[in-house]
Nucleic acid binder design. Structure first.
Lengths: 367, 367
DNA sequence: GGGGCTTGCACAATCGATGGTGCAACTATT
DNA sequence: AATAGTTGCACCATCGATTGTGCAAGCCCC
């Protein structure tokens, strides 16, 4: 094992190769043809860099070039399948561009959002994708002061381009799908269909608007009491369901749930009852989670098109003339019991030799 | 709106305040008492820094101090609840220490792992947590050459301290729980209990070892054919179940599944059959996912103690004398239909005014 | 009033990489 | 052979913050 310790610098390579640090630098960053360094010198330096395990110090380079190669993603949180798949896809896309993704979460707290943005700026990120921020305009202001390109995703701001799902249309389709699913048994009455979860943000408002519009159209009425925006907390959602149940002695026949986080709150409620208690329930839920799709009652989900949103966001952030307007991306309605492929399917798995003998040829590892 | 553009530097503040850049620097990094800067000057500079929205350039600071303030986490992937909760918890812990978390994923590919580690080193991360790496020793070598403190999590290496779950014990308890659950109906025969998923890594081996040990003890036999390590791909897992079903005309009565990723493969298989086809199935699964816990058949899960593992990892990485040994952390057996609290429960939710009138006081937003 | 001590700060080198500029040593041209 | 043009590289300032060191001004004391 070679000695542990310090990283090599261009000065080390300079000494070893006998040429100047600037020549080494030019060779290593590819600008050597432009600087008329001879092929021979370049080869020598490159060979040395390889044998010495040289890697450039990105802080030094970033300082000099005032570009860090870092691309930031500001997220509310990691721990649900919508945001984790977003992070996964973001990372793949940034790496594909040869840059380094840096993801940070800010808990949907406007102050944390601003502080996190400042911290990312302190590290000189080159671009910032602001996702699901409670106060996108607050973050915008900080970005603008720092001269940092940025776009909003998932929740729109008024000062920067925003790429969001068409939440209104998604909610319409979701609500309609739930109503039709119920109608197969017995027509749904307006007071039998509730929406839980979400808060006073653009997405929740649009989803509630779609919910109400479709409900009014298809069911003829749209009582206010059916709107229960319990915030984005699982526990508050559980409490809301418990309160409802205590009051009504039953659940609604059909429930639209604003986020899988709220659906987790519903799970907490479920734990107190046997599955049989939910046999007639129909649920519609914003955001897709493969396991949620297979719960013991029909769960119709809306999958936001994370790949399309991010692809669009990358286009827009690259356009210096992009206006502070909203770009809608259509989400996808996912029927119950559907296991969609996700970003992980893009990763190749390395098959391993099975520990036991597989019974049939190639069974355990089909091509 | 203030003009967009450049960030302020200590030189700007120097000019504005009339004192030298080094004085400004000392004031802003807190070393000013030691440098005998007067309280008056300090106050002046701090006020200026505040009004000018100054934030230090971390690249410059990092370059000079050869510490970046970045703490790295190398993950196989983001997009399942085990790793996403790990990322979530990691981030909270790093921020609590006043540093900046930087998470990167490497797809369980040894080459990508090494390259990603190199990239993190290029950004001068101060510490690296290597989680679930296929080749931890390969990453170790790179870290050592760079003089970078590091620990392994989730999968052990031989060259650095490793904090992992007690996979053997967890598998024993899981297998036993599944067997007992089945026995309530009718005693399980050895050939009715399979294990699917995982590959030839330490965790899979330990889990299989525990599985076999308990099976042999409780069921008296332990046929090789019941071991099906189908890798960590959902699709390969689906194919394995389809092949099994095609061959046997049924599923095993009870299945242990090595990872929720493999369980997702099982979902893909499930999608082709009605729920009724699985009414007698009992599943045990490594890693906890709240939605998976509520599938329409009993799913007993093992939750790895992410908080304890990370807390231990932070202790160990801080100890310069830490040996390259394995530290076991006990995982938790989670009965079917259990909705555990997660890292998100630590986030306070900001309640919003409900759009509709809540029927009971405080129902939608209980304290 | 001169030596010694403290106070309060400025100066300048440094971290590693970059890129504009300068300049020898060659080659080509007339 | 003198001039002009090319080739191949070295020199040095620079990015922004940090930190060892130096030093003037003020104070104290005998």
């Amino acid at each position: 094992m070679t000695r542990s310790g310090k990283r090599k610098t261009i000065y080390d390579l300079s000494a070893l190769s006998g040429c100047s640090p600037s020549t080494v630098s030019a060779v290593l960053n590819g600008s050597w043809r432009k600087r008329r360094i001879s092929e021979k010198t370049a080869t020598l330096v490159l060979k040395l860099a390889d044998s010495q395990q040289y890697t450039a110090n990105r802080q030094a380079r970033g300082l000099r070039r005032s570009r860090s190669g870092l691309v930031g993603l500001l997220l509310p949180l990691y721990d649900n399948r919508y945001f984790s798949s977003l992070a996964q896809t973001f990372e793949a896309m940034v790496r594909a561009r040869g840059e380094c993704p840096i993801v940070a979460s800010a808990s949907r707290d406007p102050r944390a959002e601003r502080e996190t943005a400042e911290s990312l700026i302190a590290y000189s990120v080159d671009e910032l994708f602001i996702c699901g921020a409670t106060d996108p305009d607050g973050v915008h202001e900080i970005c603008e002061k720092a001269g940092l390109r940025h776009v909003n995703i998932d929740l729109p701001g008024t000062r920067a381009p925003s790429i969001i799902s068409d939440n209104y249309d998604g909610a319409c389709r979701l609500t309609e799908a739930v109503i039709r699913h119920c109608a197969a048994t017995e027509p749904l009455r307006p007071e039998e269909l509730y929406i839980f979860g979400g808060r006073d943000d653009h997405a929740s408002r649009e989803r509630i608007r779609g919910f109400r519009a479709v409900k009014r159209t298809l069911l003829g009425a749209d009582p206010d009491v059916c709107i229960q925006p319990t915030g984005y907390s699982a526990n508050n959602t559980r409490l809301a369901f418990e309160a409802f149940f205590a009051r009504e002695g039953r659940l609604p026949r059909a429930i639209i749930i604003n986020s899988t986080i709220n659906l987790e709150g519903f799970l907490r409620f479920m734990a107190g009852f046997p599955d049989a208690a939910f046999k007639d329930l129909v649920v519609g839920c914003y955001d897709y989670d493969p396991f949620a799709s297979f719960l013991p009652f029909p769960v119709i989900m809306i999958r936001q098109d994370v790949e399309a949103m991010l692809a669009r966001a990358f286009e827009i952030i690259a356009d210096p003339a992009a206006a502070a307007q909203i770009h809608l991306v259509a989400p996808e309605l996912v029927p119950p019991r559907t296991a969609l492929a996700g970003p992980l399917d893009a990763l190749k798995d390395i098959p391993s030799r099975p520990a036991g003998r597989p019974t049939g040829a190639g069974v355990a590892h089909p091509a």
